Simulated assay, not measured.
Amino acid sequence: MIPFSILDLAPITEGGDAGQSFRNTLALAQHAERWGYHRYWLAEHHGMPGIASAATAVLIGHVAAGTRTIRVGAGGIMLPNHSPLVIAEQFGTLEALFPGRIDLGLGRAPGSDPATARALRRDLASDPDAFPRDVLELMDYFSSEPRLGVRAVPGTGLEVPLWILGSSTFGAQLAAALGLPFAFASHFAPASLMQALDLYRARFKPSVRLERPYVMLGFNVFAADTDAEARFLATSTQQAFVNLRSGRPTRLPPPVDGYRERLGPQEQALLGQILACCATGGPETVARGLEEFIERTGADELMITSQIFDPAARLRSYELTAGLRG
């Protein structure tokens, strides 16, 4: 079985706060390390009442300091929000503190609404070449002999592993052109998955960083001891997506019996599209879902996300999933 990793969206639950979210994150990372997960990623989001990982590099440092061997990284840093030099310094610092354990995934979305993006001092003008330029600039800061005349200290010469993230064919083409690994956000935007994979694999150019294509795919898992319990736990994420797409983002709500069955056709279709890459059920059901997805996509690695309200149930979901690797 291929490696399994974790994408933790650091959920803030109804009745909880960011401090509790961070404690839950560290506990999950420590368990994940013992269960054999390969890497543990956190994602940059801003202005989201249910996601606590806005200061992504700070939280990565917290998780790395509380673990010993698991790789820890960003899935991802939304590079248009930042100066590439600042990101090189932040992740150079992390790599210096935790050598050989830090990953840096890069995305081009703002990870926020337009008003929040402006508050981040982000230029909202559309320039399709800006993100590739920023990635190249960042790669230069990490190189042993930077050409730009500016040094990232720490950062220069550390060669922090870079990934390109995407939910469309744009990221696939960029990752292929630069010879970088590609992580696709199929856990919430699966529509272009197969087209993006085909493009990435067909156009991949080997580089000093990577000899052959390598894809990691986001995948939702809601695992429990029974199918019924897993379907119940999954309703928290279902509510969160419906609320978000309705323009009223909330903290992660508690599960509700029969939630999905009570939704109208529009909401049913929305969840069917968003959660197309998902396995919900007991161990046998989830195992079948994982095997089918891996066979269909040829994924080299899965990035598992389990947005579950109860921390103990979330741990159990990840524990059961880890046991399916055989």
Rank of each mutant, 00 (worst) to 15 (best):
residue 155 G to H: 11
residue 151 R to V: 15
residue 99 P to L: 03
residue 103 D to L: 08
residue 167 S to L: 14
residue 128 P to G: 04
residue 169 T to H: 05
residue 98 F to N: 00
residue 106 L to D: 06
residue 136 L to P: 00
residue 102 I to K: 05
residue 162 L to K: 05
residue 167 S to V: 13
residue 148 L to F: 04
residue 110 P to S: 13
residue 126 S to F: 14
residue 123 D to S: 13
residue 112 S to Y: 04
residue 155 G to T: 09
residue 168 S to W: 09
residue 113 D to A: 11
residue 141 Y to K: 04
residue 164 I to P: 03
residue 111 G to D: 04
residue 128 P to E: 11
residue 141 Y to C: 02
residue 111 G to V: 04
residue 113 D to I: 12
residue 101 R to C: 02
residue 165 L to T: 07
residue 103 D to Y: 03
residue 118 R to C: 11
residue 135 V to H: 02
residue 141 Y to W: 03
residue 134 D to M: 14
residue 154 P to M: 11
residue 138 L to Q: 07
residue 92 G to S: 05
residue 168 S to T: 15
residue 91 F to V: 01
residue 107 G to M: 07
residue 102 I to Y: 06
residue 147 R to Y: 06
residue 106 L to I: 01
residue 97 L to H: 01
residue 115 A to D: 15
residue 98 F to A: 11
residue 145 E to T: 13
residue 145 E to K: 08
residue 125 A to K: 12
residue 129 D to T: 13
residue 115 A to E: 15
residue 130 A to H: 08
residue 109 A to I: 01
residue 115 A to K: 14
residue 156 T to W: 02
residue 162 L to W: 07
residue 130 A to Y: 04
residue 119 A to P: 02
residue 112 S to K: 01
residue 163 W to T: 08
residue 169 T to K: 12
residue 100 G to D: 00
residue 151 R to Q: 14
residue 133 R to S: 12
residue 148 L to M: 12
residue 111 G to R: 01
residue 124 L to T: 13
residue 156 T to M: 15
residue 105 G to K: 00
residue 120 L to F: 11
residue 142 F to E: 02
residue 101 R to M: 03
residue 145 E to H: 12
residue 140 D to W: 06
residue 140 D to Y: 07
residue 108 R to A: 07
residue 136 L to D: 06
residue 105 G to I: 03
residue 166 G to Y: 06
residue 117 A to M: 09
